[in-house]
């Protein structure tokens, strides 16, 4: 992405929610929070899906791991969410590596169904495990922050400032994720992931341990999902199994990635920025009023998705943006 566009995007991301907040539209700030959350999940999923080319339908399991680990530590040990973030990410990476290693001997669709299998097994465990309170869910302890510093350390923000504060929290995490993933993309790991995607046997022939690097790729995805899960838990103030294991945590990032353009670092961001507001807008307009509850908004949403897929199966980044940009600049001169 050209530096100019990147700077503009960063500026918009930083400044946009402030007028919304001031004008009292904190609902839209929450939408912005969801956009960044899903963009973050999208770039995370892109590592296993877009770079390493493996069908992963169950990354939401690690979203749940992150949410639960941080929530448990907060409930039982009164630990700060930031320490919970470290622990949640660490736990997700370890669990992901242990679970993914055996299934990497499966290829293609068989691997994909194995990731679904892990999710399907996680659901009843989440619903019945007493340690995490089963389907009754875990509630984070409520206590007002003692000051601005405590608010940041314990992620407790009073009243109307909550939406804005959490927006910046997720924005910071997202920025860190982007920087780290950009480093991964340009390192040996990034090269090896794409080599495995393009030709697994060819990759093994030049010394790449495909199973090991698939595990690493999926663990990176798991780490990103877990980090997002931790923030989500403290934002929602409660963790329910059916909520954190919801299929949408897997499909939305996947959809954002495909809409934007799979494999490129920025594809999922473009996709999330488009998809989430559209779905929220649909919900707020068509989903309200006399037709509320009849799913009209989601019918239209489905049609939009199908149209994008049929017209641009390789994502919106596959459009000739660069040429358009050049033409635009040329005209101005």
């Amino acid at each position: 992405m050209p530096a100019l566009a990147l700077a503009a995007a960063a500026l918009i991301a930083l400044a946009l929610p402030i007028p919304l907040q001031v004008a009292g539209y904190s609902y839209f700030v929450t939408v912005a929070f969801l956009v960044i959350l899903n963009a973050m999940l999208g770039v995370g999923w892109n590592v296993i899906g877009g770079w390493a080319g493996q069908f992963d339908f169950g990354p939401n399991v690690f979203f749940a791991v992150g949410a639960y680990v941080a929530a448990l530590l907060a409930v039982h040990l009164a630990l700060s969410p930031w320490l919970g973030l470290v622990a949640g990410v660490g736990a997700a990476v370890v669990i992901c590596a242990v679970l993914t290693w055996p299934i990497t001997q499966l290829r293609g669709h068989y691997f994909a169904i194995a990731t679904v299998a892990i999710w399907m097994i996680a659901q009843p465990i989440g619903a019945t495990w007493e340690l995490i309170n089963g389907s009754r869910g875990l509630f984070l302890p409520l206590r007002p922050a003692t000051g601005p510093l405590d608010a940041v350390v314990s992620l407790r923000f009073p009243g109307r400032s909550k939406a804005l504060a959490f927006y910046y929290v997720i924005l910071v995490l997202f920025a860190v994720t982007l920087v780290l993933l950009r480093m991964v993309d340009r390192s040996k790991l990034g090269f090896y992931f794409r080599a495995i995607r393009d030709d697994q046997e060819g990759a093994e022939g030049i010394g790449i341990d495909s199973r090991l690097y698939k595990v690493i790729a999926r663990s990176i995805t798991a780490a990103v999902f877990a980090a997002a899960g931790v923030v989500y838990a403290f934002w929602a103030l409660a963790v329910f199994p059916e909520q954190v294991l919801d299929l949408n945590w897997s499909t939305f990032p996947m959809m954002a990635t495909v809409v934007g353009g799979i494999g490129s670092l920025w594809g999922p961001v473009v996709g999330a920025v488009l998809l989430i507001p559209i779905s929220q807008l649909m919900g707020a307009t068509l989903g309200a009023g006399p037709l509320a509850g009849r799913g009209i908004d989601l019918v239209v949403y489905g049609v939009i998705i199908m149209l994008v897929a049929a017209l641009r199966p390789n994502g919106l980044l596959s459009l000739p943006w660069r040429a358009w940009g050049r033409r635009l600049v040329g005209r101005r001169r």
């Binding site: 069908f55 019918v299 998705i305 994008v308 897929a309 199966p313």
Partner: peptide, 21 residues
């Protein structure tokens, strides 16, 4: 014509469309 993942994406759209219709 696109990546395999596009099929997942398209049929998720179909899923929303049919279920909510």
């Amino acid at each position: 014509r696109g990546e395999t993942f596009a099929q997942i994406f398209a049929t998720i759209g179909l899923f929303f469309f049919l279920q909510n219709s």
